[in-house]
Design a protein around this nucleic acid. Structure first.
Lengths: 187, 187
DNA sequence: CGGCCATGCGTACGATCGTACACAACGGCT
DNA sequence: AGCCGTTGTGTACGATCGTACGCATGGCCG
């Protein structure tokens, strides 16, 4: 009666995961707690331990979903490119979107990276993410170039997250052009 | 008597800061507490609140010192380069050192970045760090190229932190060569 | 229509946290 | 030598945390 029953709420788990990402984006992994996530998802505290074995599982699923979402977008955009020049343009587009998009994604990415730098469990998530991106790139560029592109993309993302300076699309295009152009052999 | 007095211990603050970096490297910012840091520095818990106004001050000073240390090393190495080719080689050396050096630095860097992505206070630290590095680079490369180099360096650092794959010096050299070579104009 | 069992929730416990504050210990000054 | 102010420390408090667990609840089967 006064108590709203939620017996049939199969999306409960999903809502919790989504809420977890919200909380992490706002307060960081450090500031994320079962209680805050439960409040955000509008579920009782007990649901946390019911649906998940512990905080680690929540984080793992949340970041897995986050990484998958971004990787899929990346893949979709790259798939539309057929020629080399289109591939270059697609990369520039993607970087541009990353950098001018929501700060939320940049922050969540950083949080994930920091976790991954310390714990192998989360490293698996980043590895899967990287692999997907790498696979999307390797259709257009050779492996070594893909690695460099990856590094450039992540570096530029970081600069955006740290608010280093405003982003110029032409500068990004120039950087991508350089990376994707083999250097002349040393003399 | 049994209590060892430390009245004259002017390096107490420094030891605490050093201990804080150790703890952060091991347990992350999230896992760093006054108690753990105090234990690591072998000082009583009360010393924390005596020497610092709060956790934030400890973190700020610790990361400031950390960033300064790395920036100084960067600057020193770049300063030894006179010609363009030497500058390129210096950058490759520095990246190589970063990537093959202690995981501690890579982890601490990630922790700082994540903090900085969220809080302006720590962003100041990263901005100062970037500025120092940028100043060291700008003597040899034009500003746009410096930004790209920065991004590349940070991206490669991240790859190392995430253990993406083993580092090849020649691959780094190729990436630096490309970035520092203006792209041919589009036709 | 009524009892049962899986499902889900409220609460309580022990641990750990940051911080404040009363007090011990010492060096210098008279 | 003895007092006093500065310097440093031990402890206790309130808040918050993750997690376990007993119990309410409602759908389903007989």
């Amino acid at each position: 009666m006064a108590v709203t029953q939620r017996r049939f709420d199969p999306e409960r788990r999903d809502r919790i995961i989504a809420a977890a990402l919200d909380v992490i984006a706002e307060a960081g992994v450090a500031g994320a707690s079962h209680r805050k996530i439960a409040a955000r998802a509008d579920v009782p505290l007990g649901s946390m331990t019911y649906h998940f074995t512990g905080m680690e599982e929540v984080l793992r699923e949340a970041f897995t979903r986050f990484a998958a979402t971004i990787a899929v977008r990346f893949e979709a955009r790259m798939a539309r490119a057929t020629t080399f020049e289109e591939a270059r343009a697609a990369v520039v587009d993607l970087i541009h979107e990353d950098l001018t998009g929501s700060a939320r994604e940049l922050v969540l990415t950083q949080e994930l990276y920091t976790l991954a730098a310390r714990e192998p469990l989360y490293r698996e998530i980043t590895h899967a993410w990287m692999k997907q991106s790498r696979d999307a790139l390797v259709r257009h560029f050779d492996p070594a170039t893909c690695r460099m592109l990856d590094a450039l993309i992540e570096g530029l993302s970081l600069h955006a997250a740290l608010d280093i300076e405003e982003h110029h699309r032409t500068a990004t295009a120039e950087a991508v052009a350089r990376i994707t152009t083999p250097a002349a052999p040393r003399h």
